[in-house]
């Protein structure tokens, strides 16, 4: 059997592990320089307002 594993369900898991890891690598390489959007902190102002209201 392929890779010596006869059970299709186990073989699928073995291959999916490798493929999902490859997916992460490909995604990481493609997106390496994208998505820079450093952070807007609204909570502190909200808490001050609540304390004033009290």
């Amino acid at each position: 059997a392929f890779l010596g594993i006869q059970d299709g369900f186990v073989l699928a898991a073995y291959l999916l592990c490798i493929l999902s890891s490859l997916l992460c690598v490909v995604y990481g390489v493609i997106m390496w320089n994208r998505g820079d959007e450093p952070v807007d902190i609204t909570w502190a102002a909200h808490e001050e307002q609540v304390e004033e209201d009290l």
Binding site: S21, L22, C24, Y27, G28, V29, M31, R34, G35, D36
Partner: peptide, 15 residues
């Protein structure tokens, strides 16, 4: 700090 760092972390984490 940014989405870019998360994208790069996917590569390291997956492996």
């Amino acid at each position: 700090g940014s989405k870019k760092q998360l994208n790069r972390a996917v590569l390291v984490g997956g492996v």
